[in-house]
């Protein structure tokens, strides 16, 4: 019985619902940014039905091939749905609509030959966020629940698995060898193909690139421990991975923004509301204090006077 309870509390720890409410706002607004900056090609791609190759998920659900009216409709649904869901209004309905529409939208973007992997955590997030249901008081909610904890844990697992699984795939693609990927010319290959970033300055140093490959491979393979970190250790891990994304962005022009934003599922966002209220109260307090002392000249004026 005790093990059962501890299993349940690992998968669904009791966490503040305000964290989910804030995360909803951030992630649904991020989806709007995403469809303009990252998965931004479904509408132009839908003009070329001859290049469409549906993924299993699209064949399984008999989804119609993308056309311009279809992708524009999806786009409009996403924008409206995200704005409603970001406000924590109709969280189940708006959330489910966004989840289905965004999954389809992203699947279309990946149905013309190129499949990206930076959307795993975000896609999982938009499917689990609606399950928490209505959060009374939204950002100001004082309630905690296992429902909130489960949604957050799912997002956390998918963030960490984005790294861990990519390490497994590297082992698999190298013929089930640990050394073949880190010792390969993969970074050289990536920089030659994207010669715009800082990476071009590393081209003369293949040994350094191998060292970087070993470093990132080790980090990815061990990323799974993040699920058991707390406090400062967790903060250190988050800072490390943000640094990792900034570095790959600068050297290779590869951003993992949809994964990076989902790191917020680890952050104690619930402290944001009380902190903002404290700051506001403090400002009000100071304003009152100043007005009480109003007749007294301020310090710097005195200094100027006495100095002159």
């Amino acid at each position: 019985m005790r093990t059962l309870r501890s299993v349940a509390s690992w998968f669904a720890p009791v966490l503040p619902e305000s964290r989910v409410a804030i995360l909803r706002t951030v992630l649904y607004l991020f989806v709007i940014i995403d469809i303009h900056l990252f998965v931004r090609d479904p509408i132009p791609l839908s003009r070329h039905p001859e290049l469409y190759q549906p993924l299993l998920i699209e064949r399984l659900f008999h989804l119609p091939p993308p056309s311009v009216p279809l992708t524009i409709t999806l786009y409009l649904i996403l924008v409206v749905g995200c704005l409603v869901a970001a406000a924590n209004v109709l969280p189940r309905l708006a959330g489910a609509v966004v989840a289905a529409a965004f999954t389809w939208w992203t699947a279309i973007g990946m149905s013309y030959g190129k499949v990206d992997h930076d959307h795993l955590a975000l896609v999982v997030a938009i499917w689990v966020l609606p399950t928490v249901g209505v959060i009374a008081d939204r950002w100001r909610s004082m309630e905690r629940s296992a429902q909130a904890g489960w949604a957050l844990k799912c997002i956390q697992i998918s963030v960490v698995f984005t790294y861990f699984l990519s390490a497994l795939t590297k082992i698999r693609s190298g013929g089930w060898s640990i050394t073949s990927w880190p010792e390969s010319s993969i970074l050289m290959w990536a920089i030659v193909r994207r010669p715009h970033g800082l990476g071009q300055f590393l081209l003369p140093y293949p040994e350094l690139l191998h060292l970087m490959q070993w470093f990132s491979f080790t980090a990815e393979l061990t990323a799974i421990v993040v699920l058991w970190l707390r406090g400062r250790a967790l903060l250190a891990a988050a800072v490390f991975w943000m640094g990792f994304h900034v570095f790959t962005m600068a050297t290779l022009y590869i951003h993992f923004a949809p994964t990076a934003i989902c790191w917020l599922a680890f952050a104690p966002l619930e402290r944001l509301g009380p902190w903002l209220r404290r700051v506001k109260a403090g400002r009000r307090e100071r304003a009152r204090g100043r007005s009480a002392r109003h007749p007294v000249p301020v310090l710097r004026d005195q200094a100027v006077d006495s100095g002159g």
Partner: peptide
């Protein structure tokens, strides 16, 4: 199998 496919971006060994 996306979104349940391999995370194969840059995962091969030139």
């Amino acid at each position: 199998l996306w979104p349940f496919g391999p995370l194969s971006q840059y995962a091969f060994s030139p």
